[in-house]
């Protein structure tokens, strides 16, 4: 059951020009967080008072603390970037479903930009009992996080190009059994197109309002209907998504 709380900021530090890492004190909620789940977060500033919350995936949990890795791209995320340790912010969560876990598999993680944090969290849980290959892409060097192979569109870090460009080779070389992905829909769609027969669980990003399944604003075409990313996801079986409509 999600809760709506004012959580204390334990730490908020810049990672690079675009990203920052936020740690929140949440002893009652930290044990509930699993990879894929997210929170609706909002800074307690006057300018944000009438604004929507921002859906942010859990990047990790350490004891009583929950971490989020956030890209400052608009007023809502920039306001979050400016919170100071000791201050509080509004948090609604944990929300959504989580990735199904596996054992003894060759696992491929594919992430793009802000899609890295939930897969970083997932990797921590899977790495003991699986062989993991994590490939990650972004527009430029600031989008790159720890992984096995990195790709940037502008070539400023890792290999120049898209995260999916070497995918057929990796699938064969690593004998991949299962794929987890998180990132822009076109990236996830490209992965699904290249590997239609490999089990593939994707955590989707969406423009979101309520976060609780009430408003039906954040839907994606899945199966025979539109499902809510917030309440029916954010993790979906990628094969169920109607890619031709995206």
């Amino acid at each position: 059951m999600p809760r709506f709380l004012e959580l204390k900021v334990a730490d908020c530090k810049r990672l690079n020009a675009d990203y920052f890492e936020l740690w929140l004190e949440a002893p009652s909620l930290a044990p509930l967080c699993k990879p894929g789940m997210f929170f609706e977060l909002k800074a307690q500033t006057a300018a944000q008072e009438r604004k929507l919350f921002k859906p942010i995936s859990v990047a990790g949990v350490l004891n009583d603390r929950i971490s989020f890795i956030i890209k400052a791209i608009g007023p809502g995320t920039r306001a979050l970037a400016e919170v100071q340790p000791g201050e509080t912010l509004f948090a609604l969560g944990p929300l959504g479903n989580d990735f199904p876990l596996v054992e003894g598999k060759n696992v491929l993680l594919v992430s793009g930009g802000v899609g890295w944090p939930p897969l970083g969290f997932l990797s921590d849980l899977l790495k003991e009992r699986n062989k993991i290959t994590h490939i990650h892409g972004g527009a430029g060097a600031s989008d790159i996080f720890p992984c096995d192979r990195a790709y940037t569109v502008d070539g400023s870090a890792g290999e120049k190009g898209l995260v999916t460009q070497d995918l057929p080779q990796i699938l064969t070389d690593q004998n991949i059994d299962i794929i987890y992905s998180c990132g822009p829909l076109p990236m996830i769609g490209a992965v699904q197109k290249i590997a239609p027969k490999i089990p593939h669980f994707a955590s989707l990003e969406a423009y979101m309002a309520c976060g609780l399944g009430a408003c039906h604003g954040c839907v994606v075409p899945v199966g025979e209907s539109y499902l809510r990313v917030c309440a029916d996801g954010p993790v979906f079986n990628a094969a169920d998504i109607r890619w031709e409509e995206i």
């Binding site: 309002a209 039906h216 954040c218 839907v219």
Partner: peptide
């Protein structure tokens, strides 16, 4: 009713746009 395709919502300066389509 299936409702309208995404994107269905957009936040503006002082309010919210929606086109849910009576899903």
């Amino acid at each position: 009713k299936a409702g309208n395709p995404p994107p269905r919502i957009f936040e503006t300066e002082a309010g919210l746009l929606n086109t849910i389509g009576l899903q």
